[in-house]
Design a protein around this nucleic acid. Structure first.
Length: 264
DNA sequence: ATGGTAGCCTTGCTA
């Protein structure tokens, strides 16, 4: 059984104590981090190696940045989406851990929608979908994990009307996200939880956490071969309630041993 | 009551 988690930490340096605590109590096998907000060379790798994790990061100064932590050493590391030539934003890393392929994704926010950030988001999502489709040809278990900056439906938003024209909820964003399930990827959280108003992000402002007014924007999207072995998926709200918390909280899933392969 | 918070360093920008 392999446990894969995703957590937008909103600065790895500011969140290192919380991350170390959470790793000790939750013991995930693979962790996908987003918004590390530092250069890869400044990532606090020694502290994580002390807990037995391998570290691979794609960073940039101040903004963005993604990383993979893993018990098993990674192989075949990809550090950008195909077609990202000339795009220096650190938003994608992907690697293999045995037969499992895992990506840590920090999808562009896209606000304000009148700016060039929104077409950048949609173009980035198109590149992600094209790559996600190509990955399926391997017929292997795949987890595309991360901060997608998309609320898939109104059930994933505390106040859908006020968010309807936001880049996280606009219909173009939702349609671009739906390409993944339409290709065959499974939203691991929704495989177990049909109830509305389950969130992974609560804004720092306006008491959103204390009112439980959040968004579900962090997703674990599983290829059919991974979904076949999916045993659990949960949002761990505890880290969001701590002092000096990230505005996101971890989501994780458990993937069991492969079952008997289909025979034709 | 048109704000509020957090993190980076570019004390404005991003979210």
């Amino acid at each position: 059984m392999t446990r894969v988690a995703s957590w937008n930490v909103n600065s790895i340096k500011a969140r290192l104590p919380h991350l170390l605590d959470w790793l000790k109590t939750s013991e995930p096998d693979i962790v996908c981090l987003q918004e590390i907000k530092c250069l890869a060379e400044d990532f606090p790798a020694l502290e994580l190696k002390g807990l037995g994790y391998h570290v691979e990061a794609v960073g940039q100064r101040s903004y963005n940045g993604v990383a993979l932590l893993s018990r098993e050493p990674p192989s075949d590391i990809r550090r950008a989406l195909p077609g990202s030539e000339g795009d220096d934003q650190a938003r994608y890393i992907e690697a293999s851990f045995g037969k499992l392929r895992v990506a840590s994704i920090y999808l562009p926010n896209g606000n304000p929608v009148e700016s060039d950030k929104y077409p950048y988001k949609l173009a980035w999502m198109k590149r992600l979908a094209t790559h996600a489709r190509a990955l399926l040809e391997s017929e292997q278990p795949i987890v595309l994990a991360g901060d997608y900056n998309v609320c898939p439906t109104d059930d994933d938003v505390y106040d859908p009307e006020s968010w309807r024209e936001d880049a996280l909820c606009k219909e173009e964003s939702r349609a671009a996200f739906r390409i993944l399930p339409n290709l065959g990827y499974v939203d691991a959280f929704r495989a177990f939880h049909a109830e509305p108003h389950r969130y992974t992000f609560w804004d720092y402002q306006a008491g959103r956490w204390h009112r439980d007014e959040g968004l579900r924007i962090d997703h674990l999207m599983l290829s059919p071969q991974a979904a076949d072995c999916l045993e659990a998926c949960e949002i761990d709200k505890a880290p969001r309630g701590k002092d000096k918390a990230s505005d996101h909280t971890p989501i994780w899933c458990a993937i069991g041993a492969p079952r008997v392969a289909a025979v034709y």
